[in-house]
């Protein structure tokens, strides 16, 4: 019973014009402390919904989410979230963005600054503290978002395709950086992606989901020692297996459509 996060028989239906749409059906996953878990699946499989429910932004229609032994009821800074879209507050500088969660928690000015500086350093943005969002590149914005999510010391980090809107080269760099940050902070990370390469490179375990309604197809342990090589034989084997699983799921959708 030493699970960090437990998703128990999670289902979610949305009401739409034609009635009800089942987005997620009976998903159960257990996440171990400090585990890096990727959730992958064809688009529209409800993986983002799943993550949003853990964040407390959506509520499950049935089932429960238990984090550190307590049921998740709404959003809280004990779950850090990095969105796919750029989400920096444009009126705040990098430093103020990172400090934001601490300001809400009413941490004193000096302590706030110290902690924020530490995380800015961690994501490699030293020297950019006083920049506004419009002065930053896409990759830098996501680095700030990561620092901002970590600053309140959340017990889990939720990432919703965080590198989806940056270019391929930046994406590779950010992945390496994320692994370094993960190693240093020992956070549990729940990472949603549609990229098989990303999932295999990053995670300890990959949860593959089926298309609508999304349910868990298979959990795959990626037991390749780190640092991983993106082009190694083992990595390719896992990629092949995952790609096969996903295309199988995708083909089911095509038939049903």
């Amino acid at each position: 019973m030493n699970h960090k996060l437990e998703l128990r028989n999670l289902s979610k239906t949305f009401s739409i014009e034609e009635g009800e749409m089942m987005a997620l059906e009976d998903v159960s996953i257990e996440v171990k402390p400090a585990e890096f878990l990727c959730i992958i699946g064809p688009s529209g499989c409800g993986k983002t919904t799943l993550l949003r429910m853990v964040a407390g932004l959506d509520h499950p229609s049935s089932g429960g989410i238990i984090l550190d032994g307590k049921e998740v009821k709404g959003p809280s800074p004990d779950r850090g979230m990095v969105f796919q879209e750029f989400s920096l507050f444009p009126w705040l500088t990098v430093l103020k963005n990172v400090e934001f969660g601490l300001e809400i928690k009413r941490v004193g000015d000096k302590a706030r600054r110290e902690i924020a500086e530490r995380y800015i350093e961690l994501v490699g943005l030293r020297g950019f503290e006083n920049c506004y969002q419009y002065e930053l590149s896409g990759g830098m914005k996501q680095r700030v978002a990561i620092a901002r999510a970590l600053v309140t010391e959340p017990s889990i980090l939720l990432m919703d395709e965080p590198f989806g809107s940056v270019d391929a080269q930046t994406r590779n760099i950010l992945q390496e950086e994320l692994l370094r940050i993960w190693k240093r902070t020992k956070k549990t990370i729940l990472f949603v992606t549609h990229s098989v390469d990303e999932a295999v490179y990053l995670s300890d375990r990959v949860a593959v989901m089926s298309a609508r309604p999304g349910c868990l197809v298979k959990c795959l342990d990626i037991d390749i020692p780190r640092p991983r090589k993106r082009t190694s034989v083992e990595v390719n084997e896992f990629r092949g297996e995952l790609l096969m699983l996903i295309s199988l799921e995708r083909s089911k959708v095509c038939i049903s459509v």
């Binding site: 979230m81 969105f83 507050f89 009126w91 705040l92 934001f100 969660g101 809400i104």
Partner: peptide
């Protein structure tokens, strides 16, 4: 997206969301 970011960073309730997110926006 900014409202949700505010929420996950601890702005619970209208008052905090207005003060820290909506007003500056």
């Amino acid at each position: 997206i900014l409202l949700e970011t505010g929420k996950v960073l601890g702005c619970i309730g209208n008052k905090k969301l207005i003060k820290y997110v909506a007003f500056p926006y």
